[in-house]
Design a protein around this nucleic acid. Structure first.
Length: 283
DNA sequence: TGAATTTGACCCTT
DNA sequence: AAGGGTCAAATTCA
């Protein structure tokens, strides 16, 4: 699985947006050659082009490269008689994907192996590894509850490390129910298999139990995991509202894509998009 | 009784 | 030295 930096993610999504906008412009042109809405589509195209140009220039200038995950699984599972292995810190930069969700479920079977109080965090950080780790699966994840608002459901920030190369992942994918969003990846692309859910026992996290449904963004559904390394999923509750708005035409699809992109940019990408657009228009 | 979870300690990185 | 990730013995659960 390729590492996806926020810039790369934006670039991918912007490219998709650009293609959608072009398609939208074609549709508008075909429907009504003199439609003033064509200008709007053209404006969207121009914006996409500017962002892509700016991002391309930015990466060409030498953006920070994310460190690759150095999971030495052989050493990690060496018997106690061997010398102590060198533990590799899997910091935030090594995460293959980070998501926020209203649920901790993602369809995989995880085994908790640790819990830690983190400075400045109200809730402990939970450490899980794939239940099929004995098959050599190196996938692990870190779950951090992000806020505890009485008016809002729990939100979790989940960072994924390593890749699922176990049979469990394949089985999971096969059993994915219709509610599942396919990310086009065997690493993330499976949903909540009921059997798996029941094996997931509730953790000690405030006595909470895992939700039986995952909440994934429909807008993210068409993106592969390699394209979206970090995205935001709404809570399950909010999801059902979104589920009713099924993209039925290219225009709606495009707007949904913009919504997804907007949240991604607002919540994830640490740069000022307006400034970026201004800079690229000046250049 | 076996499997999963909890939790304090250990160790690595910064 | 502090913070964070992992180990592994103890505990809990089905």
């Amino acid at each position: 699985m390729a590492l996806a930096t926020p810039d790369a993610v934006v670039l991918e999504l912007m490219t998709m947006g650009q293609e959608s906008a072009a398609y939208l412009a074609d549709l508008l042109r075909a429907a009504s050659p003199s439609s003033p809405h064509q200008e709007l589509a053209a404006e969207i195209l121009r914006c996409c082009h500017r962002v892509i140009a700016a991002l391309t220039a930015n990466s060409a200038a030498g953006g920070k490269k994310r460190k690759a995950v150095e999971h030495d699984s052989a050493a990690a599972w060496s018997p106690p008689s061997t010398p102590p292995r060198k533990r590799t810190r899997v910091g935030a930069e090594a995460a293959l994907g980070v998501m926020r969700s209203g649920t901790m479920e993602d369809g995989f079977i995880w085994r908790k192996y640790g819990q830690k109080e983190i400075n400045g965090r109200k809730h402990p950080r939970l450490y899980y590894r794939c239940a099929y780790s004995h098959q050599g699966c190196t996938a692990t994840r870190r779950v951090q509850r992000t806020h505890d608002d009485a008016h809002q459901p729990a939100a979790y920030e989940i960072a994924y490390y390593g890749e699922h190369n176990c049979r469990g992942a394949a089985a999971c994918q096969q059993n994915a129910p219709p509610t599942v969003i396919d990310f086009g990846s065997n690493a993330w692309g499976c949903g909540t298999a009921p059997a798996a859910s029941e094996q997931l026992r509730s953790s000690s996290l405030d006595g909470e139990t895992m939700s039986s449904q995952g909440g994934w963004s429909p807008a993210s559904a068409s993106a592969s995991a390699s394209e979206v390394g970090f995205f935001e999923a709404e809570t399950t509750h909010e999801w059902h509202d979104m589920a009713g708005v099924t993209p039925s035409d290219p225009a709606t699809e495009f707007l949904d894509g913009c919504f997804d992109l907007e949240s991604l940019i607002n919540d994830v990408v640490p740069f000022d998009l307006d400034a970026l657009l201004n800079a690229s228009s000046v250049a």
